[in-house]
Amino acid sequence: MKFTVNKKEVFASTGGRPFDKKKPLIIFIHGSGLSHITWVLQTRYFAFHGYSVLAIDLPGHGYSEGPALESIEEQGKWIADVIDSVGVKEASLVGHSQGCLVVMECASQFPDKIRSIGLMGGAGAIPMNPELLELAEKGDPKAVDLMMDWAHGPAGHFGGHPVPGLHHINLGGSIVINGSVKNALGVDFRACDNYKNGFEAAKKIKCPAINILGDRDRMCPVKEGKKLADKIKDSEVEVIENCGHMILLEEAGKSLAILKKFIRNNHPAE
C-alpha cells in the first residue's frame, strides 16, 4: 500500500490483506539497506490472523521516496509519523537489526503510542567496521557481499531456506542492491555507527519487550542482546540455536512462533 508521510510517498506491505484501521496494528521495520521483503514470513501470518500489518520501506528504501533519513532518532520519530498518518492511535513495533534501534527510539520518544516491541537481533549499539562503512558509503557492491557473509549463519552459507528454492545470501544481497547500495546502505551504516542513545532509550521503554537472538549471530552477539534486554524494564529474551543475524528468515518458523505468543499476550487481536 502506498500512503503519504510528511508529504512523501511511502510504501508498506500489508501482508496480503487490505489495511484496516480497526484491527490492532503491527509495524515491521527492516534492517540496514533492506526492505519490507525481509518480513514476508512474519507479516502474512499476522495479516491473516486478526492484525493490520505495515511492513514499511524506510524512506529511500524499497519503494519509498527518498532521501534516506540520516539518524536513528529521526527514523524513530518518523515511525510515530507513520502511525499518525494512517490514522491509528497505537501500534506494536517489530524491528530487525538497525530496525531494533529505530523501534527503541520510537518507543522511548512516544511511549503512549507503542503497545509492545519485538526485537530480532537487537543490540544497544551497532558500531560499524570502518572498512565496511567506507565501502558502503562509496556504493561499492562488495559492502553488500561482506554484509551478507557476516549476517548469515550456517543456513545462509550452506543452505536450507524455510521456503523451498530460495537462497538466503543471494536474496538478501538482491534486496540491498535493488534498493540502491549507495543511497541507502551507506546512510544506514553511518546512522548506526553514530547512534549512541540505545541504552538510554532502553531505560525509558515502558511497554513489554522481547529480544529474539541467534546464537551464531556475529553482528549482534547474544551477550550484547542480553545486555540491552537488561536495560528494558519489562523484557524477555529468546535465543534460537544455530541461527545467524537474519533470524527473521533463517529461522522464520521459530521466530514467528515466539513473536506470535508475545504479541498475542501483549497486544491481543479479537
Partner: peptide, 22 residues
C-alpha cells in the same frame, strides 16, 4: 497460504529437490 515456508506435497516441493534448487 504462503504465510510460512515448508513442504506440503512433493508436486510443489521436496527436501531432496530443494537441495538441488538451492
Amino acid at each position: 497460504n504462503l504465510e510460512q515456508g515448508g513442504h506440503i506435497y512433493s508436486r510443489i516441493s521436496n527436501p531432496t529437490v530443494q537441495v538441488l534448487e538451492e
